[in-house]
Write a protein that binds this DNA or RNA. Structure first.
Lengths: 334, 334
DNA sequence: GCGGCGCGTGTAACCGTTTCCACGAACTCT
DNA sequence: AGAGTTCGTGGAAACGGTTACACGCGCCGC
């Protein structure tokens, strides 16, 4: 067994546990000689401090909890990477939890964090902020990432889907598109809804309300294919497609080509998310790129900020703006 | 503030903390009446147990630590997903840590787990098992994933890179390739080295030693591009490429096409890893697919097994075999 | 030469749980 | 009816650290 405690170290160094603790944490006021003895004893016994005990007594764990809806694909790995980068910089550990879809699980996951973490990063496209307010152990600072809407009780950091969608449409219009289809994400998904709203607003403003049509999708490859066939059958012809994510855009573009509509000349196509694969399809896919690592990084920084200064806990909302990346799929030669 | 402890609950229910604890953990022998009172008190106060304290007292945290070399891309997100799936099934939490490359950091990461986790999953392509044996707090069960080699002190689960590489080469040869390039991973990385060794062995065996050339890469997109230009300039012409991972394969393939070498007719290409993006590039990329989620899942199961039965701690080695997935990039029409 | 101060150290309380053990009351069994 | 068992409960000791406080000591300044 392990079980070499600070008490063992203290005994071997012939000091009290208090002094041992002080020496190891290079606290003020321990004689160099004492410190030396303690450190040697610790090394000799191969002492590793028990961090659970430490955080109990210090009242702080140097760990932050991360609750994500799913752990699938690059979307989440990028976010985690960003969080980790910032956490590592500050010497924090990450306790990861996956609410497997259901709200019940989310509640469980959040409660399971109590007493293990100093703060929480929660991402919940399908759970509203009110729910969190009800379930967060009081006194646990939390940042809500990309929630449906802030209810003003928790700081939030989100993707500016609305602005992104508008920019995507504006780009298509600038390329000369007159009749634009939007392949939507699933209804009820916060990101999808915001992108749809942005699409509507931009089309109405730039081309007039009847220049845009919406085709229901659900972010999946399959729904991108379905959408393509619907687009092909539209009259008058569609000359621009804005898909709510890259996955659908890629599948849609491939299927449109099969049906004789080639990007970018017959139809200009743009996606959303900026997944790496977008640049390897032919033609390379234009997209509204999200810097998800940055999202994670900023979320963690914000969390640290509110844990450190009690006062700055107002529920501000920060927005991460997608960046327009123009590639071949929407670049008109004319 | 938070700070509603079990003591508060006990006071409100007019029982001792001992009884409160028993009631909440539905332990044996508490009167239904008492239990009821305690539970009501807990709900009224919105009590959430402090898991840090619990694990200190129970000597068990229901958490397992995961130490990974990097958190980049789908490779790791898949592993984490597998680990999470198994952990979730068993009601375990995940403490994630990233050794940012250096051995020093690895040591730190591992020590930082002491007293917070019941077991460790360590993946360390650049660190050998001996290192782990030295740094693991004693008594902490651990599984080594994909290490350079087992020193027999810790159970291991690894990818069968050697067999995978041989199969990839054999496939290229079967497609008629006579002169094959291997874009390698970084030297010193265990996976990369094993794949290189497999390449050499297979080429020598099937075509003769001088039919293969090696081009240094480092698993990155950029190095895939560099490799492509080198391949283009090779004389006699290369007609088969085995890249040590999919990322390089994809980038390499795209660049080769720019340089006039098209897959699969001019050059057959196969990657390694089986990342999802491989099937969406054009032409779709053949690959030696790894079921990384399964790797993670099995690693966790194995860890649980050894934590539960002290005796079964012999250092067995399990291998995960890559699966050949043939797609357009290496399928010769002839 | 004596009071006060600063410094290093030790004692003990504490963090929030769980759990061992003792204790009384209410049973059952002769 | 008295002795032996349950059975529910409470007190208190863990778990492994940190830290407030007290204490003894040598030093300084008057």
């Amino acid at each position: 067994m392990s079980a070499v405690t600070i008490r063992d170290v203290a005994r071997r160094a012939a000091v009290s546990v208090a002094s041992a603790s002080r020496a190891l944490n290079n606290h003020a006021s321990v004689t160099p000689a004492t410190r030396q003895r303690v450190i040697e004893a610790a090394r000799a016994l191969d002492y590793v401090p028990h961090l659970g005990a430490r955080s109990l007594s210090r009242g702080r764990s140097n760990t932050i909890g991360v609750v994500l809806p799913d752990l699938f694909g690059e979307f989440f790995s990028e976010i985690i990477r960003g969080i980790d980068r910032a956490a590592h910089r500050r010497g924090l550990q990450l306790l990861l939890s996956n609410m497997h879809g259901s709200a019940e699980e989310t509640e469980l996951a959040i409660r399971a964090m109590r007493g293990r973490v100093d703060g929480l990063l929660v991402m919940s496209p399908q759970v509203d902020a009110e729910f969190l307010g009800r379930n967060l152990p009081k006194g646990l600072p939390a940042i809500v990432m990309n929630a449906a809407a802030s209810d003003g009780t928790h700081p939030t950091i989100a993707i500016d889907n609305l602005a992104g969608a508008r920019e995507a449409v504006a780009h298509l219009v600038a390329q000369g598109c007159k009749r634009i289809a939007h392949v939507t994400g699933p209804q009820g998904n916060a990101d999808a809804d915001a992108r749809r709203a942005g699409f509507r607003a931009a089309v109405t403003e730039l081309l007039g309300a009847d220049a845009g049509i919406e085709i229901e999708g659900d972010f999946s490859e399959a729904s991108g294919i379905d959408a393509a066939w619907q687009i092909i059958s539209q009259r008058p012809h569609i000359d621009g497609v804005f898909a709510a994510n890259d996955m659908m855009a890629v599948a849609c573009m491939a299927t449109l080509a099969e049906g004789g509509m080639r990007a970018p000349d017959d139809v200009a196509i743009i996606g959303f998310d900026g997944v790496p694969i977008a640049q390897y399809v032919t033609p390379a896919l234009s997209t509204m790129a999200l810097n998800l690592a940055e999202l994670g990084e900023r979320a963690l920084e914000k969390l640290v900020a509110i844990t450190e200064s009690e006062d700055a806990a107002e529920a501000t909302t920060e927005m991460l703006k997608p960046e327009l990346v123009i590639r071949a799929s929407s670049r008109r030669h004319a």
